[in-house]
Write a protein that binds this DNA or RNA. Structure first.
Lengths: 172, 172
DNA sequence: CTATGTATGTGATACTATAACATGTCAAGG
DNA sequence: CCTTGACATGTTATAGTATCACATACATAG
């Protein structure tokens, strides 16, 4: 049941460090899914069963999953079990902005802010593998400035950081 | 013949947009190689024939080469022709800071500033495939700020941008 | 109903990367 | 000198990631 999204109402959205903070993940996930459905309806994209299921799988945790991890899940649930099945669904989700590819991990993670224009940076914990989508507007601005200085026009950017999340840092 | 490196003396170093600017590439490449030799001597690392040759190959152009591209070159010149040969040499070069891995391309490019501490950002032209190592200190600072805001400690960062270099932009 | 575009199924293959173990090389210490 | 140990390379095999190409199904507009 899609519902209007009020960030103030959403424990997940309220925290910028979503992936690293305790939060109502069921809400967080169902909300992202609902927003994806709304966006698809608006733009006429088709959130088919496989695509929807892949998004659900990605939304289960704040980590990145490899295409073959996704594929194994799909296969065990009766969907196709050939690589293109997973890759095509993932490609669709990335195109629509419902998921992001994490270059460093050759893996994919659900987008926590579908529909909102954003230049994301990803914070990847090397211990617990949590992936957090950080606000990167200033980062992207600095990158644009550096590029503009040499006459380069940026079309897509990849900003990823590997390190320790607050919890794992404290544990160490 | 190794020589002392004076940036003011180096047409390459003078331009921040090295890869995109016309420059004395022979000088640019031989200089980077010479600096790598000096650094190896200083830290006791061994720039063996394969490693040196791989660095020379990477230095031939301001583009990124895949491990298998490098391997093919090596094989055609009588070095080993198994993947580990290339991967080990590339790993050494990256560890020593003589080369960088471009995550987006699964490829490697020679470092234009070996020995100088730098948090590089890479500008990748999608048309001519040139890769430029841009000054990214402000970018990295913005990223550190964003990470610190959520208590995340960055250990390694990947900052890459895909787009159009000045030449290709003009041509389009 | 059927033509068309889009999505999926499927087999094969290409590309990227590492494990594991054998062999070679070189320099320091006996 | 020679041995020993650390590092580098050679080689086989295999793991992991991604795409091609073609067949089939499915939904919707005309």
């Amino acid at each position: 049941m899609p519902h209007t999204h009020d960030p103030a109402d959403c424990p997940g959205c309220a925290a910028p460090d979503l992936a690293f903070a305790r939060h109502d993940h069921a809400h967080c996930a169902s909300d992202a899914l609902a927003r994806a459905e709304v966006i698809c309806a608006e733009v006429g994209a088709r959130l088919t069963p496989v695509r929807r299921r892949v998004l659900e799988i990605l939304l289960e945790q704040h980590q990145a999953l490899g295409a073959y991890d996704v594929l194994n899940r799909l296969a065990s649930e009766g969907y196709g079990n050939q690589p293109p099945v997973a890759y095509r669904a993932l490609e669709f989700l990335v195109e629509q902005g419902f998921a992001h590819r994490i270059q460093r991990l050759n893996a994919f993670t659900a987008c926590m802010h579908p529909g909102e224009a954003h230049a994301p940076a990803f914070l990847i914990c090397r211990v617990c593998s949590a992936v957090s989508e950080a606000a990167a507007t200033p980062v992207r601005a600095a990158l644009d400035t550096a590029a503009a200085g040499v006459g380069f026009v940026i079309e897509r950017s990849t900003i990823e950081a590997l390190g320790l999340c607050p919890q794992c840092r404290e544990a160490a």
